[in-house]
């Protein structure tokens, strides 16, 4: 038993029990975001996977790995998407090094 169980994903609707209207609105929004639009379903699935890895959500990683494969992506493409998202996350940390420089320069002679 761990905090994250695969079955939990299939019990997502439990979070709607005490606020059904909010849950329905969320689901409608969530599903509409994944429909084909200016971006293809494949592009959206890759974005979803990249975000899922970045926010480290195991449910989302399962779901968007599936939808990436089912929209025709392969592991090379999925890996590039995951690297880009991870690199942005790493870069977002590293850019704060400039603030350390600023702080250093302010208090140093």
């Amino acid at each position: 038993m761990s905090y994250y169980e695969e079955q939990d994903l299939h019990n997502f609707d439990k979070v709607g029990e005490h606020a059904p209207e909010l849950y329905e609105k969320f689901m409608a929004w969530y599903q509409a975001c994944q429909e084909e639009g200016a971006l293809s379903k494949r592009e959206k699935a890759l974005i979803g996977l990249a975000v899922a890895v970045t926010i480290q959500c195991p449910y989302c990683i399962d779901a968007f790995t599936n939808s990436s494969l089912e929209s025709g992506s392969n592991m090379e493409q999925m890996t590039e998407a995951m690297h880009l998202a991870s690199a942005i996350r790493g870069g977002a940390s590293l850019i704060h090094g400039v603030q350390a420089h600023n702080a250093h320069d302010k208090i140093s002679m």
């Binding site: 293809s40 379903k41 599936n66 494969l69 089912e70 929209s71 025709g72």
Partner: peptide, 17 residues
């Protein structure tokens, strides 16, 4: 056909690939 336990992608899309 999918190499695993998932559904095929949309036919026209994967045909183009």
């Amino acid at each position: 056909n999918p190499v695993g336990a998932f559904l095929p992608p949309e036919q026209a899309s994967i045909e183009a690939d």
